[in-house]
Nucleic acid binder design. Structure first.
Lengths: 207, 207
DNA sequence: GCACTATTGACTACAGTGGTCAATAGTGCT
DNA sequence: AGCACTATTGACCACTGTAGTCAATAGTGC
């Protein structure tokens, strides 16, 4: 069923994926309308039920597919040989921003899915999300060295605060993100590195 | 109309406010159902349209009412004579957590309202929010002294990062918040102050 | 031209919506 | 008691939108 879907004309398939992603992202599982999806994707009503038996299967297959797309791209771009914790975090933040810029709707989809409450899919989504975290988060922190962090502060707390600071920066930009020019994106990278410098001054040994 | 509503039997009024808050908070403007609200509030369908001509007025009056409740309580609890920036931020974070714990649904309501997209109320909500920020944010930062921040880092960036760190902490707790005992809440306050100590060590002059 | 799959879109049965309104209950006043 | 007035009820309505079906058609490869 889903195999058939993956084998269809890629252009049309991509239209369907994008339409469904957008609809579920903006309205959540229950209020997303299959009618809207087929209208946006410019296919007939019947076709979507030919490839996916029902709305639930469409949603879950889409969830899996988008997870794979993002995880693959994320891990692909993340350098694996950066031991310094701060540099690694800075790099991870950049990669995330890049991906967020490239796939805003997919990120919105996962944000919506994360707070999904409809009983028809709630558990399935939570399970998939947990599994994804367990599988991939360790890969990010693998081989990272925390020994540069100041001795006089709790390492774990320092790590959390650094992550929160970078998250806060990303959130503060998320509104103006979509219409950012290449130059503005470049400026942002410079700005991030100035934040990284501050973090280094504050949380690292001053050697 | 709304005056009449405020004069009705407080217990019943509170039932209506809570039911409407919950429904709009969980489903957003469009998908919130007046039928559900009256069912939850244990009143008849007609009554809600007796006090509020239509769904839109109900929503906007509720928005204004809840804004006043939260703003009044927040400013009332916030000490006005704390000049030290870090202490003030720590105190503001605590007050926010306290309020969040006391009124989780109201916070959820505003979170949902913040991303409201329905054209019927979108502009009104955005306008109200902007006005509220303009009116009240200056009150928080009034008379605060930033001179203790280290000279070798950009003050504005330091301020942002401190705020982001505290926000990050609050977010990390927001999941386990509702079922927190009094003791756990106390532990959390201790934990916050240990984070505050770290922030002080990192961002303040070391004198 | 046959066998097969991909695709269409009108159609259905249904669930749920915001809002109405005639009827009733309750309250305070004379 | 009886009048005037408001608070409250809930059956009802016209309407919108839903997920999913299915007979019919288009397209493709042999």
């Amino acid at each position: 069923m889903f195999d058939k879907f993956m084998e269809m004309e890629p252009e049309k398939r991509e239209r369907i994926v994008q339409a469904a992603t957008k609809e579920f992202a903006l309205k959540g599982y229950k209020n997303a309308s299959t009618n809207e999806i087929v209208k946006e994707a410019k296919i007939s009503k019947g076709l979507i039920f030919h490839y996916f038996n029902n709305k639930k299967q469409l949603y879950l297959h889409l969830y899996d597919y988008l997870t794979e797309v993002i995880v693959t791209e994320y891990l692909g771009k993340l350098k694996n040989d950066e031991p310094d914790f701060l540099k690694k975090m800075g790099q991870a933040a950049l990669v995330k921003l890049e991906l967020f810029r490239k796939h805003p709707m997919i990120f919105k989809f996962f944000l919506t899915a994360y707070v999904e409450t409809d009983p028809e899919v709630r558990e399935e989504v939570a399970g998939r999300n947990q599994k994804m975290v367990e599988t991939n988060y360790p890969k990010i922190y693998e081989g990272v060295d925390y020994s540069n962090i100041r001795e006089d502060i709790d390492k774990e707390k320092a790590v959390s605060m650094i992550i929160w600071a970078l998250e806060g920066y990303a959130n503060s930009k998320s509104g103006v993100f979509r219409n950012m020019t290449e130059k503005e994106f470049g400026d942002m990278i410079v700005e991030i590195s100035s934040y990284m410098d501050i973090l280094k001054k504050c949380f690292y040994k001053s050697n």
